[in-house]
């Protein structure tokens, strides 16, 4: 075990996968000698050469188009999109190509080996274009997997699984806690199951569901609620698509209440999908409406970032409202 922050854990996973499989290639804007704007790809070019870790021109649609072709050829591309906010020029390549390649060719060809890494989320004074959480867009694409880690241990294990999974994975990294989240991480290779949620803390009165950097936020709210003698169960969803309905349902059967927290805007956010499914599966068990504590339906604001964020206080208030319903 070693103490690592989230970035170091990602770097460790990249090294591990590149050592283990020479078909793995890492590329994107500034990921080469410079090691990426956040340093997630530090030392990879020195270790594995320019052929396997390289800078690309500044074109997101090109990066993903290139990655799709490389994956279809049989290599194992790990493409970086420097910020989640800049992934949209590549949206066509992801929606129509990455995700449909296997289906349209009847399984003759696929992009199963592709992993797209991208930092996402707010809390870094990044304004509109360095703060968005676009996971819901990608949850609407049959053929994709979407994975979000909450800490260094999850990051390394989930990234290694994503790289080796025979499906294209969008791996979204909560950049707010890139350096702030520190923990013990095995230096050896290990994998964590995709499509599986993680019960972070058990409780009996309400289930709090979040992912990425927001897990810390609901933990903080849960601590406040505990002082009011409210016992919270906390679940980190980890995989947005496909997501672990079973674990969430099991929890709601027990607590009879659900709160979902995400940074992305409320309308059409992934909480909507979760709420619809849980009311379908757990209708008779629910003692209060499912609460959604989310970003506002506004562009991500710079000056009002603190007000926009679905923080621990908004979450705490929603917990109390749900219990008092």
């Amino acid at each position: 075990m070693a103490k690592m922050n989230l970035l170091q854990a990602i770097n460790s996973a990249l090294i591990s996968s590149m050592e283990q499989d020479e078909r793995v290639m890492v590329f994107g804007e500034d990921v080469g000698h410079f090691g990426g704007v956040f340093r997630a790809t530090s030392n990879l070019q020195e270790k594995f050469g320019k052929g396997r870790c390289f800078n690309t021109p500044l074109t997101e649609q090109g990066i993903i188009g290139f990655a799709n072709g490389l994956a279809a050829q049989g290599s194992v591309p790990i493409a970086e999109i420097q910020f989640g906010d800049y992934i949209f020029p590549a949206f066509d390549q992801i929606v129509n190509e990455t995700a449909k390649w296997r289906y349209r060719s009847g399984g003759q060809f696929s992009c199963g080996t592709l992993t797209i890494r991208t930092p996402y989320g707010g809390g870094i004074a990044g304004g509109h274009y360095h703060s968005q959480s676009p996971e819901a867009f990608f949850a609407h694409i049959p053929g994709m997997k979407v994975v979000i880690p909450r800490n260094p241990y999850q990051a390394k294990g989930l990234l290694l699984s994503s790289v080796r999974d025979d499906n294209p994975v969008l791996f979204m990294e909560p950049k707010k806690i890139y350096r702030a989240s520190v923990g013990e991480v095995p230096e050896t290779d290990y994998e964590l199951l995709l499509g599986k949620a993680d019960v972070v803390k058990e409780g009996t009165d309400i289930t709090l569901l979040a992912w990425g950097a927001q897990v810390e936020v609901v933990e903080k709210a849960a601590m406040m609620a505990e002082k009011d003698s409210i016992s919270c169960e906390i679940i980190d969803l980890q995989s947005i698509l496909p997501w672990d309905v079973e674990t969430v349902c099991e929890s709601v059967y027990k607590t009879n209440r659900l709160l979902i927290n995400h940074e992305a805007p409320l309308t059409g956010g992934f909480a909507s999908e979760i709420a619809a499914t849980i009311q379908q599966e757990c209708f008779l068990y629910l003692e209060a409406p499912i609460a959604r504590v989310c970003g506002l339906d506004t562009p991500y604001p710079l000056a009002h970032e603190k007000e926009y964020m679905p923080d621990h206080l908004k979450t705490y208030e929603a917990i109390k409202r749900t219990l008092d319903y």
Binding site: G65, A67, G69
Partner: peptide
């Protein structure tokens, strides 16, 4: 769409 893909395939 096949144009950048061809670059990747060839690489």
């Amino acid at each position: 769409t096949q144009i950048p893909q061809a670059s990747g395939y060839a690489y």
